[in-house]
Design a protein around this nucleic acid. Sequence first.
DNA 1: TAATGTGAAAACCTTCACAGCT
DNA 2: AGCTGTGAAGGTTTTCACATTA
Lengths: 214, 214
Amino acid sequence: MRGPEVPEVVVVRLPLYVRALTTMLTEGLEVVSSQQLGSRLLMTPAQIRKDLSYFGRFGKQGRGYNVRFLLQELRRILALDIEWRACLVGVGRLGRAIINYPGFAPEAFNIVAAFDHDEEQVGTKVGDILVRSMSELPSTVESLGISIGIVAVPATQAQRVIEHLVANGVRGILNYAPVAPKVPEGTVIRNIDPVLSLQSMTFYLRESLQTTPA
Amino acid sequence: MRGPEVPEVVVVRLPLYVRALTTMLTEGLEVVSSQQLGSRLLMTPAQIRKDLSYFGRFGKQGRGYNVRFLLQELRRILALDIEWRACLVGVGRLGRAIINYPGFAPEAFNIVAAFDHDEEQVGTKVGDILVRSMSELPSTVESLGISIGIVAVPATQAQRVIEHLVANGVRGILNYAPVAPKVPEGTVIRNIDPVLSLQSMTFYLRESLQTTPA
DNA sequence: TAATGTGAAAACCTTCACAGCT
DNA sequence: AGCTGTGAAGGTTTTCACATTA
């Protein structure tokens, strides 16, 4: 009963295309070939064409892709043409930095509520977001139409908090805690974990440290 | 002249094992099977065994892996048994949050210097790190033995800054700017980009929004 | 008995190469 | 002439399944 099942790797690349096309549009480019897009993103033209082919036929043979049109189509496919509401859980240093991060809003990701376990924090404001008690989470998620939860609590609490979010209807989790939480089928989780990134980087750096033999 | 070439996907998974094993060690677990490790990480036991087999034979048949020994071996393989020095470029809101992030130091990633283009910032301190002028970058990288650069500058400047770091001998880049910079062969880059993560998440959330038909 | 380590098979993803359209 | 869209080929990664060993 499913569609032709798009590989997840492909879905993960679409935002890269969106970003590159957005830049190209501001540069005044009207038409782009898979070749040009590929050289900007360091990818093969074939991969770009194949990726797009999972969703439809967006180009013109002999010509390329209309930048504005392709961008619009990709934004529709990724559901970036609607506003997404997120809540933040955990208003410590990291949580505050996330609320103040200016990169989300321009992409139509709006943090509309914040929660913290610590009753000292409840009632204060971070930026212009009111910090609420965890007990208000269910009703707030419901009334504000929140579908994404951003988790910035200590590692030990992340699993519990995520389960709480999911139990209250939040289907997307952006997790900043350094753990790999389990989520039920139908929930989408993305982990932001700079330490893991560094820990795989050093595997390759190690080799270059040992170069320059006598 | 190369070794048996370990796939990058495998290297990227090793830190997950390190983290899980570290937790297990604190829980007092002495021996672990690929089965147990897999159920904690939601991976198949076969994948874990195959991954480890690229690097050697660490287990005992019929028994499993000694937690302490496997952890030690993995940390050695990833070069996590030495101290790594990093510098931060860009001391805006994001950069300040990164310096204050308490997750790096316990893993032996130390931010030992910070740079900013803005001469107003130069000479001030963020936490206990002195903000230096960009012109001091070459000598500082050299004298402090910095091998990792953390980039938290605006998107428009990221490529330039990264080239500057690489030109001065920095081989590892942790990039927080929302761009996919090009780096020369032999340089390792990892991008931290929460917006990209959200933009691929919404593809899957879209479907669940449209459920519940009449 | 219980679990590793590993060739072989299966699944998955990328690249090729070209028919077909503009 | 130029570039897309796509089956088929090629390559990579995962999983299977079992010989082996504690």
